[in-house]
């Protein structure tokens, strides 16, 4: 509040305004990934065989596990809002922490996957990747860019939910004023939706 120089006291709080701002922000996030999906679709169209071959090297089990983890974290996030709506502060805090832990589990899986890929020499700039056909270089280029950017969003989401947990503990998020938590939830669900698309596009190419 330090920069709030002249306090424009609104007659009443406008929750819809806050949510509208968040939704618009989500659209720009959606289009940020949208740009990458455009590139993906063009390159997949140009190199169908190579994409299929390269995707066989993905660990489908870990991918599926991560999908379930992220979906479950979305559930706990939604439940934490339902809990605060009913005034159950402790339950809401617990569910928020569980959400963060699921996010952490997702990231741990990612680290395992990436270190495996790196050990096999499938990292950008490596000689073994450079010797592959163009389509496979592009597949891995897009894989690292898209999944990496998504991972960054998971980290940001975890941080944001962490702040929300602190706010809830300090009583800034309450049964009557939980729009901040709702906005954080919207962000977390968007991260989930993006993964819902990334999963089949990188792990399940036949």
């Amino acid at each position: 509040m330090t920069t709030q120089e002249h306090a424009v006291e609104q007659v009443h709080r406008d929750d819809i305004r806050s949510k509208m701002g968040m939704w618009l922000f989500l659209f720009s996030e959606l289009l940020l990934f949208g740009g990458l999906f455009f590139m993906y679709s063009v390159y997949r169209f140009m190199h169908q065989q190579d994409f299929s071959i390269a995707s066989k090297e993905m660990n489908t089990f870990l991918g599926t596990l991560n999908t379930v983890i992220l979906l479950t974290s979305s559930l706990t996030m939604a439940l934490s809002i339902a809990a605060i709506q009913r005034g159950k502060k402790a339950l809401s805090i617990f569910l928020q922490i569980v959400t963060i832990l699921f996010g952490l589990a997702f990231m741990v899986n990612k680290v395992i996957e990436w270190s495996h890929e790196f050990a096999e020499g499938n990292f950008p700039g490596s000689a073994s990747l450079a010797n592959r056909p163009p389509g496979q270089i592009l597949y891995f280029g897009l894989y690292y860019s898209m999944v990496g950017l998504h991972g960054l969003h998971v980290l940001v989401g975890m941080t944001v939910i962490g702040f929300m947990t602190v706010f809830t503990i300090r009583g800034k998020i309450t049964q009557d004023n939980y729009v901040k938590l709702e906005a954080a939830g919207l962000y977390w669900h968007l991260v989930d939706i993006i993964w819902i698309f990334l999963f089949p596009l990188f792990y399940l190419i036949t």
Binding site: L32, A130, I137, L138, Y144
Partner: peptide, 27 residues
């Protein structure tokens, strides 16, 4: 956001040699 991600990809391509647009990397 579309130009944002595109320019970000050029940065990524310059720094990490990730194949996105450069024709020598198939782009």
């Amino acid at each position: 956001p579309i130009v944002g991600i595109t320019l970000l990809m050029v940065i990524v391509e310059r720094v990490f040699h990730v194949g996105i647009f450069d024709p020598t990397l198939g782009g």
